[in-house]
C-alpha cells in the first residue's frame, strides 16, 4: 500500500489510526459485513460439485486490492467476484483464506466446503480452468450480482413512507373513483395515447444505443398508431400488424454503456430511482412533448391525469407487494433494481 509507506514505520500510532480508518471505511461501505464470520451468503448460489470426495462449490473471484490491509485490522478478508456478464461485486467478509495466493487484482478460483461454507482451496485461475464451472446458467439471472448501494437509506425510508401515505390517502381514492366511472377499455385507450406521444423518448434512445431496428419500429408504430390507431388511442400496430413496442429510456441508455445505478434514491412522488436513472428522467424530459405544454399548470394537470389513469389500471399491485413483503422498502428497492437491470440487458 502506497499510503502505508507514506505514513512511515516509526509512527506506529498514526499507522494504527490509519489502519483503523481504512477498516472503518471498508466497514461502512460493506453492508454485507453484518454477517461477520458467517459463510458467505452467495454460497448457496454456486453450483455444488463433488470434488476430491467432498461436496464443494466453485466460484471465480477477483481479489480486492485492499485485501491485505483488511487482514491486518480484524483478521478477515473481502474479495470481489465477477460473473459471466462481467458484473463485479464485493462479497461478504471471510475469516480465513490461504494467504499465499492473495495477490491483489489477480483472478483466483476458490472452492468452498459445502458443509462449513469455508474456503478450502484457492488456485490461480488459469491452472484449473476445467474444474471450475463458476456460476452456472441457472443463476445467470443475477443471484450472484450485488445489490444496489443505498447509503441514504434513512432519507429514502422517510420518502418511502411519504409515498406510501400519498398512495393510500390521495392517489388510490382518486384512482378508485375514476376507475368506477370510466370503463377499462377507455382507460387502456388513454394509456395507449400517453404511451404513443412518448415515442421520441423510445426512438431516440434506441438510436443512442445503436438499435437501428428498434428506432425504425418505434417510428413505424407511431405512424400506424397515430393514423389507423386514431391519435394513438388504439395500439393498432400491435393488434393489427404485430409490431412489438420497444421500451427504452435514457437511464437504460446510460446503463447500456456500462454506467451503474450509483446509489438508490427513493424520490418523493416519483418513487424508486437511482442517480443514473434520475439523469435519465431529466434527459428524457426534453423528449417528452407534455413538458412543452404551456402554461406549466396544464403540463402538471396532464401529468397528474396520466398518473391517475395509470394507477387505475394497476390498483392492487402495490398492496400485493406490501402484503407479501417482510420489509416493503427493501422489497420495492430490489424489485426496482432487478427490473431496471433486466430492461438494460434486454
Amino acid at each position: 500500500m502506497l499510503s502505508l509507506q507514506f505514513v512511515g514505520k516509526e509512527s506506529i500510532n498514526v499507522r494504527k489510526i490509519f489502519v483503523a480508518f481504512v477498516c472503518s471505511v471498508l466497514w461502512i461501505i460493506q453492508p454485507a459485513v453484518s454477517s461477520f464470520g458467517q459463510p458467505p451468503e452467495f454460497l448457496s448460489d454456486l453450483k455444488a460439485t463433488s470434488f476430491e470426495g467432498q461436496t464443494k462449490r466453485f466460484g471465480q473471484f477477483y481479489l480486492v486490492p485492499d485485501v491485505d490491509v483488511t487482514s491486518d485490522g480484524f483478521g478477515g478478508y473481502f474479495y470481489s467476484y465477477k460473473d459471466k456478464r462481467g458484473n463485479k461485486t464485493t462479497t461478504n467478509r471471510l475469516d480465513s483464506l490461504p494467504k499465499g495466493l492473495l495477490t491483489a487484482g489477480k483472478p483466483v478460483q476458490v472452492a468452498f466446503n459445502d458443509a462449513t461454507g469455508m474456503p478450502v482451496r484457492v488456485a490461480e485461475s488459469q491452472t484449473s480452468q476445467h474444474e471450475v464451472s463458476g456460476p452456472s446458467t441457472h443463476d445467470e439471472s443475477g443471484e450472484l450480482e450485488g445489490e444496489i448501494y443505498d447509503p441514504i437509506e434513512p432519507v429514502n425510508r422517510a420518502f418511502f413512507h411519504f409515498n406510501d401515505k400519498l398512495y393510500f390517502w390521495v392517489l388510490k381514492p382518486i384512482a378508485t373513483g375514476y376507475e368506477k366511472v370510466f370503463p377499462e377499455p377507455l382507460r387502456v385507450s388513454v394509456r395507449n395515447f400517453f404511451h404513443n406521444i412518448l415515442m421520441p423518448v423510445r426512438a431516440i434512445n434506441c438510436l443512442l444505443q445503436g438499435k437501428i431496428e428498434g428506432f425504425g419500429t418505434e417510428i413505424t408504430r407511431f405512424i400506424v398508431n397515430s393514423t389507423i390507431g386514431i391519435c394513438g388511442f388504439s395500439d393498432a400496430a400491435k393488434t393489427a400488424f404485430n409490431i412489438e413496442k420497444r421500451d427504452e429510456d435514457f437511464g437504460q441508455t446510460l446503463g447500456f454503456y456500462g454506467l451503474g445505478p450509483g446509489i438508490y434514491i427513493n424520490w418523493p412522488l416519483l418513487g424508486p430511482s437511482s442517480i443514473r436513472d434520475t439523469f435519465g428522467i431529466v434527459g428524457d424530459g426534453f423528449l417528452n412533448p407534455v413538458n412543452y405544454v404551456e402554461p406549466a399548470k396544464y403540463c402538471i394537470a396532464i401529468k397528474a391525469y396520466d398518473q391517475i389513469n395509470k394507477t387505475s389500471l394497476s390498483l392492487g399491485q402495490y398492496e400485493a407487494l406490501k402484503k407479501a413483503a417482510f420489509d416493503p422498502y427493501i422489497s420495492l428497492r430490489e424489485a426496482y433494481y432487478e427490473n431496471r437491470r433486466y430492461k438494460i440487458r434486454e
Binding site: 443475477g142 432487478e338 433486466y342 430492461k343
Partner: peptide
C-alpha cells in the same frame, strides 16, 4: 424454485429482505 417477473426474482427479493433480519424476528 424461483419465479422472475420482468426480471424481478421472487427468491432474490425475499433473500434481500431476510438478509439483515434476525431469524427470530423473521
Amino acid at each position: 424454485y424461483d419465479i422472475s417477473v420482468e426480471g424481478r426474482s421472487l427468491i432474490n427479493n425475499y433473500r434481500k429482505q431476510f438478509q439483515r433480519m434476525p431469524y427470530k424476528k423473521l
